[in-house]
Amino acid sequence: MQGLGHRVAITGYGVIAPCGIGKEAYWNGLLGPGITGTRSVEIPEWDPLPYFESAKDARRSDRVEQFALAAAQEAFQQAGTLNVEPSRFGTIFATGIGGLHTLEEQVIIRVEKGERRVSPFLVPMMMANASGAAISMRYGLQGPNETICTACAAGTHAIGYAARQIAWGRCDAVATGGSECAATLTSLAGFGNMTALSSTGSSKPFDATRDGFVMGEGAAVFILERYDLAVARGAKILGEILGAGSNADAHHITAPAPGGTGAIACMNLALEDAGLTASDIA
């Protein structure tokens, strides 16, 4: 990865999704029967309490933040103890929207009961950067704490930018990833009316017969660490980030440019960043 020459290792990760909580359950869920005939799918019987000190703290967090903290807990447990100064441990997180359930609930409360009944926690619960802020505060991460908000690409953008923080030498470790919980009734109506939802109720990106997506929810968190520091402390290296690319096709707000020219250019940027060619990718 271009920068000051620091390599970037992945030393921990965690995941929360409708098909499984925790990476083992998640993987088994992915191999399961899949989703058919629905326009949205939620994590069944989600209980945030195991991830918070008190019921009050849990209630102050939108579900999107609860997911982020749960995924972070698994990721940090796997990574173990890092030998990193807090000021060099960053949080580069992502979401497409943020605490939309809280916003929608509070809009209804304002309309039905008036401004005086709007929760004082609305702003810290709905803001897109709440999840990253929560991770940073819980683990005492005092490096850069920034949230990338680029729709479906947000999580990937965050991971690339987080890795760059290490490659550049600004950080020695970064907690990164994304969280989403935005399938509210209003949001589903919007996605449905813009004809983005699957008419057959199944999500199959890259498939020739794809016909839209099914709204989901969940979070994933990765712990990125300067490669040599991870090796020095005896951490298990789960993977390495060799390169990342980011661009825009400047074409249309939802449709990709014909021929996938923007995506091709982006993949070439990532390959170039990694010092690889397309034929190196198995």
Partner: peptide
């Protein structure tokens, strides 16, 4: 202080 605001509401 925010908890107290919420309680008062």
């Amino acid at each position: 202080s925010l908890d107290v605001v919420e309680l008062v509401m």
